[in-house]
Every structure is written in C-alpha cells, then in structure tokens.
C-alpha cells in the first residue's frame, strides 16, 4: 500500500456506476467531496459531515457507507455506486425510484439519494422485512420534509412485489 503524505495529491481511480473514473486527491479529501467536486457527480449530497444524516450514503463494493466519513483514497481501486446509476440509460426510473415517486416519498429530494442507496443495499440482502424493520433501517437517515410515511409505503410495496415474484 503506498504511503500518503499530507498535502500531496495522489491519483485515485475507481469504478463509478460501472465506469472508470479518476482524479487527484489529497489524503484528507472526503469521498463525498471527491465525487461532487472532482468527478462532478453531484447527485450525492452532503447534509451534516458527521455521519448522522445519511444524505451522502453511497455503496462501496456494494455496501452502503457514509461518503462524508470516508476518504477518497479509501475508494481507490474499488467499486462505488451512487444515485446516478439507479435509472436505466434512457432515464426509466428503477422500481425503487418509481415507488418513491408514486408514494410521494420525497419532497425537496436532498436526503433522497442517500436513502435510495441504503435501500438498494438493504433490499439486496433479501428477506421480507416488515414495517418495523424498514423503519429501523430508515432510522439511519434524516428527512425533514416527509415524515417518512411515503418511504415506508414505497418499500413495503416493493417488498410485496418481490414476494409475489418469488412465489410466481
């Protein structure tokens, strides 16, 4: 592992939503800032910079993490997935995105990208979470607009759909 020196930039490369991206980063540069300001992937938002609000959540090798508590250099050579990668190439919303829209699960939309990324990881883990488990999972995120009801409904709908598909 290369030894990094404070104040000196090093080259960072990773797969962002399936495509290779690179940029230069000081050791102290946060992954959130790298994504937004170096790569221009501004879909990931920064809401508190201390790991509580969850707005900056992205997936690092599939696992939902806070990009405000992760250094850019930690992502080097890995896979990063963000909200920009959820919809189809032609803009068709993913099932989760569409359920959010249908259920008025967002208002200002600032916290939404992080919540979607956490849910992608959560739903990929399988099982049939009930409302209590969904709320428990969502409690890792803060939203000030919606009171969370629409999100809970959206996820319950998806879980139900997945259940029906498995039984079909």
């Amino acid at each position: 592992m290369p030894r990094l020196k404070a104040g000196e930039k090093s080259r960072i490369s990773f797969k962002l939503n399936g495509r290779k991206v690179s940029g230069d980063a000081e050791p102290r540069l946060l992954l959130a800032d790298f994504l937004r300001h170096e790569i221009g992937a501004t879909g990931t938002h920064v809401g508190c910079e201390h790991g509580v609000c969850g707005a900056c959540t992205v997936r690092l090798d599939g696992v939902a993490i806070r990009s405000c508590l992760t250094l850019a250099v930690q992502a080097n050579g890995r896979r990063v997935d963000t909200v920009e990668g959820l919809a189809e190439e032609d803009g068709t919303l993913s099932r989760l995105q569409a359920a959010f829209r249908r259920n008025h699960a967002l208002q200002c939309g600032f916290c939404t990208p992080g919540i979607l990324m956490s849910l992608e990881d959560f739903l990929a883990r399988g099982g049939e979470p009930d409302e209590g488990e969904i709320r428990e999972m969502l409690s890792g995120h803060l939203c000030r607009c919606t009171g969370y009801s629409g999100m809970v409904r959206a996820v319950l709908e998806i879980v139900e759909e997945m259940h029906e598909e498995q039984n079909a």
Binding site: H45, E84, A87, L93, R101, G109
Partner: peptide, 17 residues
C-alpha cells in the same frame, strides 16, 4: 404525480452546491 421527482430521484437535482 410530481414533475419534480424524476430529476431528484436520479441525482439530477440542481441545488446551489
């Protein structure tokens, strides 16, 4: 359904930052 949502759900919001 809201016309705002497609952009906000896919990381294409246009917030100040």
């Amino acid at each position: 359904e809201r016309i705002e949502d497609a952009a906000l759900l896919s990381g294409q919001g246009r917030f100040i930052d």
